[in-house]
């Protein structure tokens, strides 16, 4: 049972990473690409970590794996903030759909 749940979580995580890559390839400007990467990849990493923690041999290993997730989320929030503020200050305008 736990085996199947872990496999399903790993596959869901892989799907979210894929969604992040598609977003990076398809979105029009820096801000939306940043949004796609930061959000989808962190969710995918969370699913992968949960899936691996389910099959860890001891509770300490599982907790260590789960501890990585908040750290990575804080780190990527910091990077996203720095990039977005810098891009805004350098005058990169957000993309808008042209109205006919």
């Amino acid at each position: 049972m736990i085996e199947w749940l872990s496999m399903a979580l790993l596959l869901v995580g892989a799907f979210f990473f894929f969604a992040g890559t598609v977003g990076l390839l398809r979105f029009p400007d820096v801000y939306s690409r940043l949004h796609a990467l930061a959000k989808a990849d962190n969710l995918g990493l969370g699913c992968v970590l949960l899936g691996l923690a389910l099959q860890a041999e001891s509770i300490a290993v599982a907790l260590k794996l789960l501890l990585i997730w908040p750290l990575v989320m804080a780190a990527s929030a910091g990077i996203s903030f720095a990039i977005a503020r810098r891009a805004d200050r350098l005058g990169i305008t957000p993309w808008r759909q042209e109205r006919p």
């Binding site: 990076l24 820096v30 690409r33 940043l34 990467l37 930061a38 990849d41 962190n42 995918g44 990493l45 990575v72 780190a75 990527s76 990077i79 996203s80 990039i83 810098r86 891009a87 350098l90 990169i92």
Partner: peptide
Amino acid sequence: ADGMLVALLIGT
């Protein structure tokens, strides 16, 4: 800014 996305990407 696109070049900087790489750092975010490789972090996760």
